[in-house]
Design a protein around this nucleic acid. Sequence first.
DNA 1: TAACAATAGTTGCATGTGCAACTATTTGAA
DNA 2: TTCAAATAGTTGCACATGCAACTATTGTTA
Lengths: 155, 155
Amino acid sequence: MKTKEVHIDFERSIGPWLGRTMKLLDYHMHEALQSAGLDLTKEQMVVLKKLHQKDGLNQNELAFLTYRDKSSLARLLSKMERKKYIIRKQSTDDKRVNQVFLTKTGRATYLKTRPVIKKLINKMEQNISTEEKVQMIDLLQKVQVNFEPELTFNK
Amino acid sequence: MKTKEVHIDFERSIGPWLGRTMKLLDYHMHEALQSAGLDLTKEQMVVLKKLHQKDGLNQNELAFLTYRDKSSLARLLSKMERKKYIIRKQSTDDKRVNQVFLTKTGRATYLKTRPVIKKLINKMEQNISTEEKVQMIDLLQKVQVNFEPELTFNK
DNA sequence: TAACAATAGTTGCATGTGCAACTATTTGAA
DNA sequence: TTCAAATAGTTGCACATGCAACTATTGTTA
């Protein structure tokens, strides 16, 4: 029977569940940032976060750390630069390289996002025990390893 | 200490793991379709799938089933219509409504994607037991319910 | 019935994405 | 040392996305 056959492949797999969950997370993340009056996207937030952890990273490093194409990152940075969250400074050692720095505004904005994100995480993880979280991360990591066997741990 | 503090909120949560896993899945899905010589995106594939399950759905229904904004769906359909995978037919009952039908080409294309997807799923789920899959889906569902309590089950 | 509200779909606008081609610079090798 | 290969970043192109405003049609209500 056609319907049954169809269900064999994708519907019972974790793929669609991942996709749906991710869409919800994206949506609520975006919503949380907007309704907190923060003028940035979740993608920009992640870049701010990385810079807050280590200022002065170059674009290549930022692209790698955020799992993006360098071109995508470059455009993200352009928008963030327009908003005065970051600045690019050409390295004197190697004129091909741009080092990226948080501005005061950028840092302040990032700090304002933190409680917003924290609240979102609490919402997302309510009724989920620490053990379950560990389990979930374990399984997600397994999936990642299945796709990219060469990257044993990719934090 | 700043570094430690930063790790408290997002890094240890399942959010980034979900995001990273999803990016990998997206990438490999896209790659699989392309290298099989199939001229469609994963998004278009999902639409074909829904139509294969139930032909003649209207755009609203398709948007709902695929968790998309109606405008996004409309544009997806326009591209698929250009490629002759689907056709829109204005309903005679209600002239506002477009019913969407698979063409022969669309159906054939969808059928060609199935082994490709099946192979991808096998790759993704290797070394993951049925029990673990159930566990994972359970947890993902919990996250979804946390975000959208009103939708108890949203398959 | 006439006017207003709801609904389906489209379009403008801004966002984010990867790939491929391009520029500028640096590195490496003949 | 000079010329080719590698590297960092940018840009064009095509794709996908949501929101808000808009059109056309249908439903509702006064």
